[in-house]
Amino acid sequence: MTRPEPTPSGTAFPGGWRRALEEGASRYSYAFLDESAKREIRRRILKAIALPGCQVPFGSREMPIARGWGTGGLQLTLALIGPEDVLKVIDQGCDDSVNAVNIKKFVGRVAGVRMTTDTRAATLIQTRHRIPEEKLDSGQVLIFQVPIPEPLRLVEPSERETRRMHAEADYSRMWLYLYEDIVRYGEITVGARYPVMVNGRYLMDPSPIPRWDLPRLHRAENLFLFCAGREKRIYAVPPHTDVEPLSFEDFASRVERFPGRSCSRCGAGDSFLDEVIDDARGLRSWVCSDTAFCEKRRTRNAPPAEAPGGSR
């Protein structure tokens, strides 16, 4: 190996590091991933769509962000994005969180696409732990960042064993877990990551979205793609597919409720709310978790009755 010759000025970047970075970015393929990587990911996506809810392994690439920070979702986004696309990135419903902003900046630099915070205007939406309140339509794709793709990990540590369980549709252990929960606590205590049955065949981890969002997966108009970069798995819920949360006849799974609460900023009483504690006075208030939805309502100044999110 030969080391690069030190330049006379003492820096490896003649013309400044910022310019070197720009030139470096231009040396990558469009949207950062090389074409063969994109092709592989697209093939895996097609397989995942053909087998709704089934986890398809893929060769997760090294990304310029750390594994566990959305590399799965990012790889799907980069494999699917084209110059015409409009991208929205949210992190727990929020457009402005550090993680979402950094991913947006990165994709903007390597793919040169338009960004939006408007759910309706986006063609691709990358999300962490939420589904937007506004209903998506058939032209849109929602891409989830997934930390743990295996819903059976809760009851079975061995990957070999969980694969056998999926192959044989042997989900009694998961049901037993829910039964034990009911016996011990009188209700199912699983909050986020509630296991769902997709198309009556595969048990799927919907990523840590609140139960509130589960009904949106059922027979939706749009495509849902899930990807775990660290665990190297892609799975999908195609449009118009049955997605049913596991529930007993006498203990149905329930969505979160916010009795008597409404968003303190836009007044919405029919959206998923986050609790905010005012440090100075210790007062609690509630705000919409979906910031773009909240903002839209505020600017339109519409009364809550006209909500597009649907009543619940």
Partner: peptide, 26 residues
């Protein structure tokens, strides 16, 4: 399964057989 309740152990087989009603399982 020694860590799962006695009732749960019996429930497991019933759940495998497609029982989905907690009251009837118990």
């Amino acid at each position: 399964r020694l860590k799962v309740s006695a009732g749960g152990n019996i429930a497991e087989r019933l759940l495998m057989a497609g029982w989905r009603h907690v009251g009837r399982i118990r």
